[in-house]
Amino acid sequence: MATPLSADALARALRGEGVRVAEHGDWKTHNRDHRGPWGPVHGVMLHHTAGVDSLALCRSGTSALPGPLCAGLVAKDGTVHLLGHGRTNHAGSGSAAVLAAVLAEAPPPAPGPDTTDGNARFYGFEIENLGNGGDPYPAAQLDAVERLSTALCRAHGWSARSVIGHKEWTRRKIDPSFSMAGMRGRIGARLGAAPAGPARPPGPATPAGPVPSAYEPFPGAAFFVPGRRSPLITAVGKRLVAEGCGRYTIGPGPVWTEADGRSYAAWQRVLGYRGSAADGVPGRASWDRLRVPRI
């Protein structure tokens, strides 16, 4: 059970897991919240579109089922197109017993009567596929499904059992047309590793010779001890504030304090780290993602 991520936090979590994200128009405010609540959320629900060229349909819906029909559409090339944020028309009514299993992070039972509003309780993602058994899911597409599901589980501290298919929610549906047990296995394995970090966009070939970085190199964890004074620490604090992770009452300033540690721990949690991995001491992976400008 959790408060839904903000739109910015959702996009940041996906990118932090290496998902290639495309943001569409007013997706951050495009929703069906006027029809009922969204949240607390309990998990992620996966669907297939049963069609092709699904972007416009998933965004706008139909006269009988207005859009958005999902938070995001996973294209064949692995791009996740963000189309809505909030309540979306993706799940419909489903099984209270299945929802209870998701809450308990237990294996889902066979779905019972459709008595529970799934649109209020799940993030919904559509996967472009005909669903007829003859339309393949490319490796890049399944990888994106794995990563986006992992990203949301990391952000909320959920296990892979918080991810279900529409076919597991209600007896009315058959999507997605791949093994949910297999996908949960992939998600569980990825959750056991550190976040993958942002996907690198394609670019020109690296020129010959070293290219100076625009960002400060990682100075090592031992640099960040209470009382350490450096202009670099001020620069770190400013980046943490810019990312919405500042936990300062005064500052940031050039001396590493408990407030800096709390702020950095907030950044680690944004990236999906939990427990002792979010201890407020910079590590190389989280440092590289913070991108502290050279001073």
Rank of each mutant, 00 (worst) to 15 (best):
F178E: 01
R172D: 11
P201F: 07
A222H: 12
R87N: 11
L103D: 12
Y264R: 00
M183H: 09
P254M: 01
A97E: 14
C58P: 04
S276Y: 05
G131W: 13
G92K: 07
M45W: 06
A7F: 12
R247Q: 14
R59F: 02
P282Q: 03
G78N: 09
I174L: 14
A266W: 06
D26L: 11
A155L: 08
S93L: 15
V292K: 05
L69K: 13
G275F: 05
R147H: 03
L83E: 04
A97D: 14
G118N: 00
W38S: 04
G61K: 09
A285F: 08
E126H: 15
V236N: 03
V41H: 04
T206F: 08
G86L: 11
S159A: 04
R35F: 07
R284G: 06
R291G: 08
I164V: 14
A7Y: 12
S149G: 10
L65V: 15
G280W: 04
F223D: 01
H48W: 03
V102Q: 06
L290I: 05
T257W: 06
V102T: 10
D117P: 04
F223T: 11
T170R: 01
T79A: 09
A140L: 12
L69G: 12
R121C: 14
R172F: 09
R200M: 03
A266S: 11
I127L: 14
A193I: 02
A104L: 07
L55T: 05
S230Q: 07
G134D: 06
D260I: 00
G157Q: 06
E128K: 09
G25D: 14
P202C: 03
V241F: 10
D175T: 15
G61M: 07
K76A: 14
V281S: 12
G188I: 01
A104Q: 10
A181M: 01
V225A: 14
G209M: 03
G253M: 00
P109A: 05
T49P: 07
Y215H: 14
T257R: 10
A266T: 08
A75V: 01
A222K: 12
H42S: 13
G39H: 01
R228E: 06
E17D: 03
L152A: 05
G280Q: 07
G131H: 11
